Simulated assay, not measured.
Amino acid sequence: MKIATWNVNSLNVRMPHLKQWLVEAQPDVVGLQETKLDDPRFPDADIAALGYRSVFCGQKTYNGVALLSRVPAGECVVAIPGFEDEQKRVIAATIDGVRVVNLYVVNGKAVGDPKYDYKLRWLAAVRDWLAEEIRAHPELVVLGDFNIAPDDRDVHDPAAWHGKILCSTPERDALRALLDLGLHDSFRLHQQEAGHFSWWDYRLGGLRRNLGLRIDLVLVSEALRARCAAAGIDREPRTWERPSDHAPAWVTLAR
């Protein structure tokens, strides 16, 4: 069972890329972030023609999340229970027996900014919710654009990024609090080396010079750890014309 995450940075623009990647990569489940489409404009029929069912929650111009799957998704949730938030950043569903939670984590703008405080409150609410989800669904995958580089191996220049947004200690602590629920970074179950990234700035030759961050994660619960057969990042779509600034990250779970 191949499960992937991809911040497409506008599905309207990146739909040709998504179609090509679904055909080439053949994932079973894909979580999308930053679809930037309100629900009536979501290309459900086009995606169905490729063999995928869709559940989605979006808004015009920014945010928006979706789950695509080869089999129908059930028990769908489109917000953090008990957390009042107009931004469409969360969708969860049960797919082929696995609970999949797709998160588009708040960027935060800058350390100390009100949006940074919102990010930390949002992550605390996610933690409380996931604690309940993992009790109800031991086979749990939490994926998405986390907008946090877990540690210095995930940053092209740790000294330059030290203490800054996406790499600050409170953000990393908030991510660690999610992992402490019994979740594992699937990529790090297979690869310990530094220098592997999922996001590169469009500016300054970011991809060519590998000036990136690993902020797109697929976390697996302890109950799925033994089934985590492989994990990786697919850089290829980032090289295509008019790409998203993110590349897909994925995990394969043995049946």
Rank of each mutant, 00 (worst) to 15 (best):
A229N: 02
Q192H: 11
C76I: 15
N102C: 13
L143K: 01
E171C: 07
D151R: 05
D245K: 05
E84P: 00
A45Q: 11
V105L: 10
S221L: 03
I233D: 01
Q20L: 11
I215Q: 01
E24C: 03
L175H: 08
V100H: 03
R70Q: 11
R70S: 05
S244A: 13
R41S: 09
Q20V: 00
G31P: 11
P237S: 10
T252N: 09
W161G: 00
P243R: 07
H156Y: 15
S244C: 09
V218T: 06
E133T: 04
D154L: 08
D151F: 11
A230C: 02
K115A: 12
W250F: 12
V101A: 06
H17T: 14
S69K: 09
T239H: 15
A131S: 14
D245V: 05
H162I: 00
Q33L: 02
A45G: 08
K36C: 05
V30G: 05
M15D: 04
L140S: 01
L219P: 01
E171L: 08
D38F: 12
D46G: 09
T94H: 10
L103G: 03
I80K: 08
R203H: 10
D113I: 04
P158G: 05
P158D: 07
S69A: 14
E133V: 05
R238T: 03
F187Y: 13
V251K: 02
F56E: 00
L103S: 04
N210G: 06
E133Y: 05
G144A: 08
N63V: 02
F187G: 00
H184S: 03
V220K: 00
C57G: 00
L22M: 10
L50I: 00
L189K: 01
H190Q: 10
D38N: 11
A79C: 11
A230Q: 11
V23H: 15
R208G: 01
R14S: 14
W21N: 08
V71T: 15
L37G: 02
P43E: 04
G51E: 07
G195E: 10
P43K: 07
V105Q: 02
V78E: 12
H156C: 10
A73P: 05
L217C: 02
T61W: 14
A66W: 03
E34D: 09
C57R: 13
R235W: 14
T239L: 13
W6D: 08
A79N: 12
Q33T: 08
R41P: 00
L37F: 06
F146E: 01
D44N: 07
C167H: 11
G182N: 01
K19F: 12
Y118D: 11
R214F: 07
I165E: 09
H246D: 02
L18Y: 13
L178N: 01
G212C: 07
K60H: 08
T5E: 07
K88Y: 09
R135E: 13
D46Q: 14
I95H: 08
I95V: 15
A48K: 14
V65Y: 07
T239V: 05
P72W: 13
N12F: 15
K119T: 04
V13H: 14
